[in-house]
């Protein structure tokens, strides 16, 4: 069956959760459409996990509602219809521990049965999912022998074992090494290719920027931005350029930096007081801020080359942009 990607699958309506007088989540409104990856970004303690736990009804909202599409229409999530509405969702919330003495096969078999997956297909499904995650050789090994990255993959497997359309992943890459983080990122993109809708929380800006179609930024329990990265960039009118020069000796850095500043400043589209160019000695990368206008980007590149700079790398990194956006949106003075 084909469904439109404009179809809303999940909706938060004024979602609020209080702990005593403290608002962990306050008046969040957002919607997730079929087939998209929505990144839920915020620092630790911003309210991401609380919001996700409310989706799973591990916590009750103090105010507001969560609506989930079930049987063709959006329905308000309640304890009464929880089993039915959450059937089509798979959750990985925080970093759960597994029963170390059991194998992935035993645990996933139990989870699949709980969700009513057809019994005669469970074994094949477990093998497929573990193959997808590269763990097929570990299917009957005890989980206590697994590394942290492998356990996290089992966490993802437990979220997708019943083949839900919507997958909710809370900080799936936290604590993983770069290789494992990349693997998880690739799985997320593959899941999207399969038509899954993914709601992904993280405080790792890069991980979100690499996969998310839209980004919801949460700070102190409030949703402060929710849009595509392109639109957010356009709204803030700021972006970052990274560039590297060929054979630049350290003694020349200061000279290059000053020269670059004077050359590019009129082209950045940013007020002089807010404009900056930096050099990172560890990475050998220059960084500058500009207004995100592609035309200005081109002008900056041209002026550097015309003035004899041997530019070998020139890019607008998404993570850098998101980091900048994040600081922009979450720091009151900057706002």
């Amino acid at each position: 069956m084909n469904k439109s990607n404009q179809e809303v699958l999940i909706q938060f309506r004024n979602l609020t959760r209080k702990f005593g007088d403290f608002y962990a989540v306050k008046n969040i409104n957002l919607e997730i459409k079929r087939g998209e990856i929505v990144g839920f970004l915020g620092p630790n303690g911003a309210g991401k996990s609380t919001a996700m736990k409310m989706m799973a009804l591990l916590l009750d909202p103090t105010e507001g509602e969560i609506w989930i599409r079930g049987n063709g229409e959006l329905q308000k999530l309640t304890r009464k219809n929880k089993d039915y509405l959450l059937d089509n969702l798979g959750f990985l919330i925080e970093n759960p521990a597994f029963y170390g003495d059991l194998s992935p096969r035993t645990i996933l078999n139990y989870f699949a049965k709980l969700k009513g997956y057809p019994k005669d297909k469970i074994n094949d499904r477990i093998e497929d999912v573990l193959k997808f995650l590269g763990l097929e050789a570990w299917i009957d090994k005890k989980i206590k022998t697994f590394s942290k990255g492998m356990r996290q993959k089992i966490g993802i497997a437990s979220a997708i074992i019943h083949d839900p359309d919507i997958i909710v992943l809370d900080e799936p890459q936290t604590g993983l090494d770069p290789k494992a983080r990349k693997e998880v990122r690739d799985f997320i993109l593959e899941l999207k290719q399969m038509g899954k809708t993914i709601f992904l929380s993280s405080h790792l800006l890069y991980e979100i920027s690499e996969v998310a179609d839209r980004v919801a930024i949460i700070h102190q329990g409030r949703l402060i931005a929710f849009d595509t990265l392109d639109n957010l960039e356009a709204k803030t009118k700021k972006s970052i350029i990274n560039f590297e020069l060929l054979n630049t000796e350290d003694k020349n850095q200061k000279e290059f930096l000053e020269k670059t500043k004077s050359l590019v400043h009129p082209l950045t589209g940013i007020e002089k007081d807010l404009s900056w160019v930096k050099y990172n000695e560890d990475t050998g990368v220059f960084q500058m801020i500009f207004d995100g206008d592609p035309l200005n980007q081109l002008k900056i590149l041209r002026v550097l080359i015309d003035n004899g700079f041997k530019v070998i790398e020139f890019s607008v990194p998404k993570a850098g942009l998101l980091e900048d956006l994040f600081i922009e949106l979450t720091t009151p003075e900057v706002k």
Binding site: M1, N2, K3, S4, N5, Q6, R34, G35, D87, K115, G116, Y117, P118, H162, D163, D165, M194, G195
Partner: peptide, 11 residues
């Protein structure tokens, strides 16, 4: 607007 294949599982 694009169309997405919906996988139906007989749960």
């Amino acid at each position: 607007q694009i169309l997405i294949d919906e996988i139906i599982v007989d749960r």
